Simulated scan of single mutants.
Amino acid sequence: MVPIYEKREVVRVRPATTADGEAIRAIRNHAVATSTALWTDTRQSPADAAAWLAVHLARGSALVAETDGQGCESGESGEGSEIVGFAVYGPWRDLDGYRHTVENSVYVREGSQGLGIGRALLGALVDAARAAGHHSMIAGIESGNAPSVRLHRRFGFTEVGTVPEAGLKFGRWFDLTLMRLSLED
């Protein structure tokens, strides 16, 4: 568990479950509507979100961060617990030659950024990908998202390139910074 002193709460990272789906969907849809972290204008419906999460759950590649509440010590989500972020990894590309490389996504609920939640999620996600035997992890980050670039650097990710004007959102073109981490020691 990670103490979050500013809020006098404890945040715990654990594997996601089907029951976390609506909280994950709410965080993801907020990012779709308000940020350049996710380059789509399409919010997930409950059915789409459930299908997307089911793929990650089957792979064992979805984590959530929750505030402390009854049950957190025992590994169960308890009353009073609240999902404040999630992280997933998935195939970087669909072709089998890329099967040992994964791409990460880390999202923290609005109002909870800057408290160490992203750091806790990314650390646990990197550990999970290593344990699953993956070779490398890629992060595709909107180039102006300095906090995300810094977070990934802290974990040893290195910038491997920038693709100018790779995505369009809110009527503007955005550059994509690609970062890579070797998952093998």
Rank of each mutant, 00 (worst) to 15 (best):
residue 89 Y to R: 04
residue 129 A to Y: 08
residue 79 E to S: 03
residue 105 S to C: 09
residue 88 V to P: 00
residue 95 L to T: 10
residue 105 S to K: 11
residue 97 G to T: 09
residue 14 R to I: 07
residue 114 G to F: 08
residue 61 S to L: 03
residue 42 T to N: 12
residue 120 A to D: 00
residue 16 A to S: 14
residue 19 A to K: 11
residue 88 V to F: 07
residue 9 E to F: 09
residue 123 G to P: 07
residue 110 E to R: 13
residue 12 R to C: 11
residue 100 H to N: 11
residue 107 Y to A: 05
residue 78 G to V: 03
residue 52 W to K: 09
residue 24 I to M: 15
residue 129 A to I: 05
residue 20 D to V: 03
residue 15 P to A: 13
residue 72 C to S: 14
residue 109 R to A: 15
residue 103 E to D: 12
residue 33 A to Y: 06
residue 113 Q to K: 14
residue 110 E to N: 12
residue 52 W to C: 02
residue 108 V to S: 03
residue 41 D to R: 08
residue 22 E to F: 00
residue 53 L to P: 01
residue 112 S to E: 14
residue 51 A to S: 13
residue 59 R to P: 01
residue 58 A to D: 09
residue 61 S to K: 06
residue 129 A to M: 10
residue 69 G to N: 02
residue 75 G to T: 04
residue 90 G to C: 03
residue 88 V to R: 09
residue 105 S to I: 14
residue 115 L to H: 06
residue 66 E to R: 10
residue 90 G to W: 02
residue 44 Q to T: 00
residue 111 G to A: 08
residue 130 R to D: 02
residue 131 A to T: 13
residue 77 S to D: 01
residue 71 G to A: 07
residue 93 R to G: 04
residue 69 G to R: 01
residue 93 R to C: 04
residue 52 W to F: 12
residue 13 V to W: 04
residue 70 Q to S: 13
residue 102 V to Q: 07
residue 90 G to V: 01
residue 52 W to P: 04
residue 121 L to R: 07
residue 11 V to H: 02
residue 84 V to I: 04
residue 46 P to M: 03
